[in-house]
Design a binder for these strands. Structure first.
Lengths: 71, 71
DNA sequence: ACCATATGTCAAGTGTGCTTGTCATATGGT
DNA sequence: ACCATATGACAAGCACACTTGACATATGGT
């Protein structure tokens, strides 16, 4: 999942910690999402969109063949 | 997380199983999401939006105070 | 009555999302 | 040199997202 968080943060002059506080999550969570280590949950994605005043689709973009499966 | 899946399925005449197949997930997953037992992952939410030709925001709506916990 | 389809739910298992805590590195101010 | 801030990352732990398999109920066609 690609994301524009670094750009959007920079536009607002927010650190990862500052964004995390606005979102109500830990700094490590913001870092992990930015670096693509994992995707946010849908509720968190909504919160991120709200904080930036954008649509989820304007912030995140699924990679071509991002299917999961399981156990 | 509220969702309009039952309505959207009905409009298209799709069963839960048929939608599940289009999404590449199990029927139980579609059922659980519809009934609000859990939220879809963000990649699955994108896929659902794609299948219905809508934005995620047009299908899902976060409940008022849907914050998570701590670990 | 019988069968097929649709829906709802439970159980057990695997991997993810998020937590706190900690460490390492880089940068800028003094 | 020292300190504060910012970022990146790892570990252990808990709850959630998904899986397959199974069972129960309801509806409609024959």
């Amino acid at each position: 999942m690609k994301n524009r968080l670094p750009v959007l943060r920079a536009e607002r002059g927010w650190s990862q910690a500052a964004l995390a506080e606005r979102l109500g999550v830990s700094r490590q969570t913001v870092n992990a999402i930015e670096k693509g280590r994992y995707d946010p949950s849908l509720p968190l994605a909504f919160k991120i969109a709200e904080v930036f005043g954008l649509a989820i689709e304007d912030i995140f973009e699924p990679e071509p063949s991002e299917v999961h499966h399981a156990g």
